[in-house]
């Protein structure tokens, strides 16, 4: 059992890859925004890949443990302290009954951090997953973010917590996060409605070179970027509507860049599954984690075009990287 003393700003139970196979009913997958950090946290404590952990956004979480577990915190630095002692990120620790884990607020670049506990958070799966899907108010703990007084059940650990503790992700595999006012390079392929049918080649050249500012109103649903006057390859959206960004509604890829009128919005893992605006690019699955560490209102994005083949290669490399064999004993 995990006892929540302070839920922080926005802390949710998540699992990877989330609620898969439900897009056609309108359920986005949910899951961790930064799946790289989340998956490594699970690897560090000896959990299976699908095990649920916590996504801590912008800090403030305080929890108490009631039994012996291996834990790991991966992601943004929130000045985590275990019983008052600073906790190193990307490393597994042993905790015991009565231990207190506190997160302060963000101490540097990055926006989210992940807590894995050996055995995982054992909330009941809803429609096949324990991931919290906030827009649909389902999954996780009562379909909502955590608050003080919540008591989260834990599963049986797969491995001896003492064995899983004391391991670390090597420094070479810990990503560095772009800071405030800095640019994140995000790999993306052209999307289904790019040039030449919907946008001009100049529109796409601008798209792949501009430094897009991430709006403060961005969240797990969508990442809003700057308004831009596109040239457009069409006069209007035809049967889809008056504006050239309109199409007859179709399914949206997770991670698509959805251009709504003049505004591009990256559809994140809680985003809409279907709609009537064009998608001119799709973020490579292996680059989705970067979205999780951008700071709304502060980060910039430059989309780096990759081919489908390159995107697949990145994904395979990522799978090989996030693996127990890459851990070090500390």
């Amino acid at each position: 059992m995990l006892e929540v003393r302070n839920g922080g700003f926005e802390t949710t139970v998540q699992d990877y890859p989330g609620r898969i196979g439900m897009l056609s009913l309108g359920f986005a997958p949910a899951g961790p925004m930064d799946d790289y950090a989340f998956r490594f946290a699970n690897v560090l404590v000896g959990n299976l890949p699908g095990t649920a952990g916590l996504e801590i956004t912008a800090g403030g979480l305080v929890i108490a443990f009631q039994d012996e577990r291996a834990i790991a915190v991966c992601g943004a630095d929130m000045g985590a302290r275990l019983n008052g002692q600073p906790l190193e990120l990307w490393r597994s620790y042993l905790v015991r009954a009565g231990d207190l884990l506190e997160f302060d607020y963000l101490q540097g670049p990055g926006f989210r951090t992940y807590l894995a506990v050996s055995g995982g958070i054992d909330v009941p799966p809803v429609l096949g997953s324990r991931a919290t899907y906030l827009p649909g108010a389902i999954g996780g703990f009562e379909g909502r973010k955590l608050q003080a007084g919540d008591r989260l059940p834990l599963g049986e650990p797969m491995t001896d917590p003492a064995q899983a503790a004391g391991r670390r992700v090597p420094a070479s595999l810990i990503p560095s996060y772009s800071g405030y006012n800095e640019v994140w390079e995000v790999e993306a392929t052209r999307g289904p409605q790019a040039d030449p049918d919907y946008m001009t080649a100049e529109d796409m050249a601008f798209f792949f070179s501009h430094h897009w500012k991430l709006d403060a109103a961005s969240n797990r649903t969508g990442y809003r970027l700057d308004i831009h006057k596109w040239q457009w390859a069409r006069e209007s959206g035809g049967a889809g509507g008056g504006h050239p960004s309109n199409i007859l509604d179709n399914g949206y890829p997770v991670g698509a860049v959805n251009v709504c009128g003049d505004q591009p919005i990256i559809l994140c893992i809680d985003g809409p599954t279907l709609g009537g605006f064009i998608c001119n690019a799709v973020v490579a699955k292996a680059a989705m984690w970067k979205l999780g560490q951008m700071v709304p209102g502060w980060s910039y994005i430059r989309f780096k075009e990759v081919t489908l083949e390159e995107a697949i290669t990145l994904l395979k490399q990522q799978d090989e990287t996030i693996h127990e064999s890459n851990l070090e004993r500390s």
Partner: peptide
Amino acid sequence: MAEHTIKSPLPGIF
């Protein structure tokens, strides 16, 4: 006279 600053725990728009 002592002065104290109030800090924002969060990034965002004030």
